[in-house]
Design a protein around this nucleic acid. Structure first.
Lengths: 332, 332
DNA sequence: CTCAATTTTTACAACGATGTAATGTGAGAG
DNA sequence: CTCTCACATTACATCGTTGTAAAAATTGAG
């Protein structure tokens, strides 16, 4: 049977509330009493019951992190940053996978309202407004990434600008037939829309006419899907001069598909990604990409979340995180 | 203000307990009453308070998953499987990073005893017995992977046998100077010890004498560390005929380092990994590896965990998960 | 040494859900 | 029409912690 405040109190010869005071440190406790209590806690190997504390305080100390696909290296790196920053601030992190399914996103909101979770960091994908209904009493939410509508606090990298800059960078070496990989015909994510727009904006700046045949679509944002889509594309289309993949995972798949066909990168085609994932840095050839600090995203997301928890009424806050174009071997 | 059972009860004209009975379905409730209650729940948008339920029941419905390094693709895929299987069974998953730090592993055990967590799935690394003390009232624990001692329920892939088989597979094409990458001089993990032993067992079978100079050590199990270690190694050593990396992440780093030096894979050297991570499948060249079903691991781990929660007394259970050697382009 | 002002500690009641045991309701048998 | 028996519902206490408000102990001034 686990010890409770009551047990500790009895052993220390004080009241339960005094034990609580020692733990929380808000109400002052005299030195000798504190000592007795602390010793009693030691002896009984006391561990507070967080369910009880959560019930009483209305705070669990847990936040949820919901990502569309937990299996990707990007998710992994993002999760790591968030877990680490959260820990530094005393939070635990519950992890969830939405599968870019609005239904799951909705479920999560409900869960988050069940008081086991104080807040939610959500990377929405489809997010037609159906997903996050800011109607009833919602838990504090921070959105990660591009979103169709402004409905909650949000941290993001400007995908439009980054994609534009990347496209411009690809064009610098004189390449004009620049293809993009990652457009999804059926379920367009806000992110992919932004990146595509950025790409098109760059083309306009460059005076390159749009060419529908350079938009390579792709079912999922996975290497497998990318490799397959690209291979099929190349079966019936000429090789572009450059390929901008909307994520590093896509680029990794693309590199594999190109290699299988004997296409040399970057000699025959330049390839770039987005996210700056570790495996991209060590791809063959190492991958040019849009880089940004995931830890900053984590820090900002947690800051917004805690601010929101403290003050549920203030207006929506949006934080933009800087990016840089990192040129590696896949484009030079 | 969120609705509680009390509110629902008042609205439905019944007692709080009846509402509870409707939710839990253990105590029978007459059809008309149930209907009234359900409607009231709908109208009030009732969501049960899990902290309260957890306090009362002594169960939170949350398990923790602790991995050494959340940033790796392997962690990501493992986490995905566990989260998905856990969800199917109604559990939530809290995610933690130990950084292969025994101190953190210890902290986790304490947290796990704080009743916000019903059980713990832990992938220990250093795990000298210090980490998991099976002394006092511990929460149910399932260990993932190789472990120095038998101290808790456990699910693992036989690293020894797999490493042996992989080494034999590498030798099949006549290669005899087979190096391994991933040994860590200072903090040896049980896993790396097993894999090394398997490698050595294969050498013995093959009648190849051991050669210390073919053991390439590496600080971390990351591509960066692998690339660096291998590059330094090749500066002062001849190229081996094959390279068995203890994880796919290491192999990805190795492929990059080899490519940078103009070494062709598999013509000049065969490379193999361990874990069968997606990015390895799409590496250039695609990576030969030890494959095993992560979902099976997840399922078994959860099974052991729930069994242990139901019966804290039974003996330790150990489950072995099958593996296969998957040969891809990096070795043929 | 007394009394007020302060500090420290306490008793009690919540937080929300649910198990226990008791109460209330109805059906069917006599 | 009464009495039993099964079933449905309820009142109450409880899980472990902490805020509130009041009591007790301590301090310092006069």
């Amino acid at each position: 049977m686990r010890a409770t405040v009551k047990d500790v109190a009895r052993r220390a010869g004080v009241s339960p509330k005094t034990v609580s005071n020692v733990m929380n440190g808000i109400v002052p406790v005299s030195a000798p009493t504190r000592l007795r209590v602390e010793q009693a806690m030691q002896e009984l190997d006391y561990v507070p019951n967080l369910s009880a504390r959560g019930l009483r305080n209305g705070r669990s100390g847990v936040i949820a992190l919901a990502l569309p696909d937990l299996a990707t290296p990007f998710s992994a790196e993002m999760a790591q940053s968030i877990v680490e920053v959260a820990h530094e601030q005393g939070w635990s992190v519950q992890i969830e996978e939405t599968g870019s399914d609005p239904q799951r996103e909705q479920e999560l909101m409900t869960r988050a309202r069940s008081n086991l979770i104080d807040g939610l960091i959500l990377n929405p994908v489809v997010l037609d407004e159906s997903a996050v209904k800011v109607g009833v009493a919602l838990p504090p939410v921070v959105l990660l990434g591009e979103v169709a509508q402004e409905l909650a606090d949000r941290v993001y990298v400007d995908s439009f600008a980054a994609a534009r800059d990347m496209t411009l960078a690809l064009a610098k070496s004189g390449r004009r037939r620049i293809a993009v990989l990652g457009i999804n015909k059926t379920r367009q994510s806000a992110t992919s829309i932004q990146r595509r727009r950025g790409y098109e904006a760059a083309l306009q700046i460059l005076g390159i006419p749009r060419d529908e045949s350079l938009l390579i679509s792709c079912g999922l944002w996975t290497p497998g899907s990318a490799a397959e889509s690209l291979a099929r594309y190349l079966d019936s289309n000429p090789l572009p001069e450059a390929l901008f993949c909307f994520t590093d995972s896509l680029a990794i798949g693309a590199l594999n598909a190109l290699w299988k066909r004997g296409v040399r990168v970057p000699e025959d085609i330049a390839v770039a990604g987005f996210d700056d994932v570790t495996d991209g840095r060590y791809a063959v050839p190492s991958l040019t990409t849009v880089s940004f600090d995931k830890r900053t995203i984590a820090t900002e997301a947690l800051r917004l979340l805690t601010e929101r928890m403290a003050d549920r009424t203030h207006g929506q806050r949006v934080v933009t995180v800087d990016y840089t174009i990192v040129e590696r071997d896949s484009t030079r």
